[in-house]
Amino acid sequence: MKAKGTARKYIYAISFFFITLSGFGQMPIFKRYYIADIPGLGWLAQFYVTHIIHYVAAIVLIALVIYILFDFILNRSGRITGSGYFKIVILAGLIASGVLMVVKNLPNTHFGHTTIIALDLFHLSFCMLLLGASFYTLVKKKKWVK
């Protein structure tokens, strides 16, 4: 049981790491600031590669989040903490805005210009908030569930 919990943590951490890295890779910053010059990180400057990695990490993250949600509902093991609720709301916003952006990228799909800009800004804001909240809970050793 504990092994499964550890697996969840690792899958969450790895998918979160890659989704954040590839997400920032959507902006043309890694080449400008020499990060893509570091051996093994050249892919960060290849926009189609970061795009695919972002989608793959999103698939893993969505599957994991839904699994944990239903697992929690079915087994009712513990109570969600305050910081846990905060991160859940941000994560929900991040996933919702991300899914809308995936829909926006499909062929023959037209979103209004303002909607696209708003989605970009919301998605980036949710990401920054989740990064900040995750850093805080990691340092303070606060858990999702008591």
Binding site: I62, I66, L106
Partner: peptide
């Protein structure tokens, strides 16, 4: 991959 994304929540459930 967007099509595959539809299967992600189903896999989780």
């Amino acid at each position: 991959l967007a099509k595959a994304m539809i299967a992600a929540p189903l896999a989780g459930v």
